[in-house]
């Protein structure tokens, strides 16, 4: 009897560290940030309840927040979403029977994903350097004029989205390869008998079969893309520059961190965090609708 009792308690003890840690470092601060978002909480000084004022300020009078959301959406499209249009064709190619060195390509393409953002940004800042960067050198070789990538608002966006694509294409490609391998081979064989070409087969079989995985991968990209902080933070030189020329690199997460840790306005930063969270939920809801439409489900 005693034995049976320990056997029924043991699993709860084994899983308890997660729940204790999550209660202390997850639930408590998350709940507390709701509270803080209703106060004019600063790093120091008196704290007063101000209701929805933080939210109203952020959404109506703060020019930087609107700018930051706009920047984040642009990077979401040119970085986080664009990479799926590169990753899926690459996955189909690497996965095709005629390619031999599958592991080599997977390893090489995936390496950027495990590389620290700091190192990546330092390397790419060099490549994008106006006077001595390799990218401008190639442009000049091709007869173009050097472009001040990191000093100009469009250039900052191009550099950032290049980094995002470079870093995460391999990750998405590996996910898509696994998805491709789970598609039953006889579907393709039946299409072969019908005489379908390669394009037609991918449109008629691969895409619909992959829809759940595409949805999942895009969801991860949206969640990640809405949190982009380190890349613009390091590339545009910390909080001081607020994202560089015309605040082009000021993402929503960078503005949140600036508001909290540079401006010291903790209440306002908490309100930004919750607005961002709601935006993420909204975007994922849109993503669900779009992928269901693509899959022909309504």
């Amino acid at each position: 009897m005693k034995k049976l009792q320990t056997q029924s308690i043991a699993p709860y003890i084994f899983i308890s560290p997660f729940f204790i840690l999550f209660a202390v470092f997850g639930i408590f601060p998350i709940g507390y940030s709701i509270v803080m978002s209703f106060f004019n909480w600063k790093l120091t000084g008196p704290v007063g309840f101000i209701g929805f004022q933080n939210y109203i300020n952020v959404l109506t009078v703060d020019p930087y927040f609107v700018k930051a959301i706009g920047n984040t959406v642009v990077l979401l499209i040119t970085g986080s979403l664009l990479q799926h249009f590169i990753a899926l064709p690459l996955a189909i190619m690497v996965n095709s029977k005629i390619v031999k060195q599958k592991e080599f390509f997977k390893t090489t393409y995936f390496l950027p994903y495990v590389t620290s953002t700091v190192a990546v940004v330092i390397i790419f800042s060099n490549l994008f350097d106006t006077n001595f960067g390799l990218i401008n050198y190639v442009i000049e070789l091709l007869g173009g004029k050097p472009y001040p990538w990191l000093a100009q608002s469009v250039g900052i966006k191009v550099a950032l989205s290049t980094i995002l694509n470079w870093k995460y294409v391999g990750w998405n490609m590996v996910i898509y390869i696994a998805g491709l391998q789970s598609i039953p081979v006889d579907l393709y064989e039946a299409a072969d008998i019908d005489g379908a070409g390669t394009w037609k087969k991918h449109l008629a079989i691969t895409l619909p079969q992959l829809t759940p995985i595409i949805f999942f991968a895009v969801t991860l990209s949206i969640i990640g893309g809405m949190q982009i902080f380190e890349e613009p933070f390091i590339m545009t030189g910390g909080y001081e520059n607020l994202g560089g020329d015309q605040n082009s690199g000021l993402t929503a997460a960078l503005y949140l961190m600036f508001t909290a840790f540079k401006a010291g306005r903790l209440g306002k930063a908490s309100a930004i965090a919750w607005i961002l969270f709601i935006v993420i939920l909204f975007l994922n809801w849109i993503n669900r609708i779009v992928t269901n439409k693509l899959a022909g489900k309504d």
Partner: peptide
């Protein structure tokens, strides 16, 4: 446990810092 993976890291950062 799995659902907590979807929580964005920035949601608790401000109070976490104060803690």
């Amino acid at each position: 446990v799995i659902a907590t993976l979807a929580i964005p890291g920035f949601l608790n950062i401000v109070p976490f810092y104060k803690m």
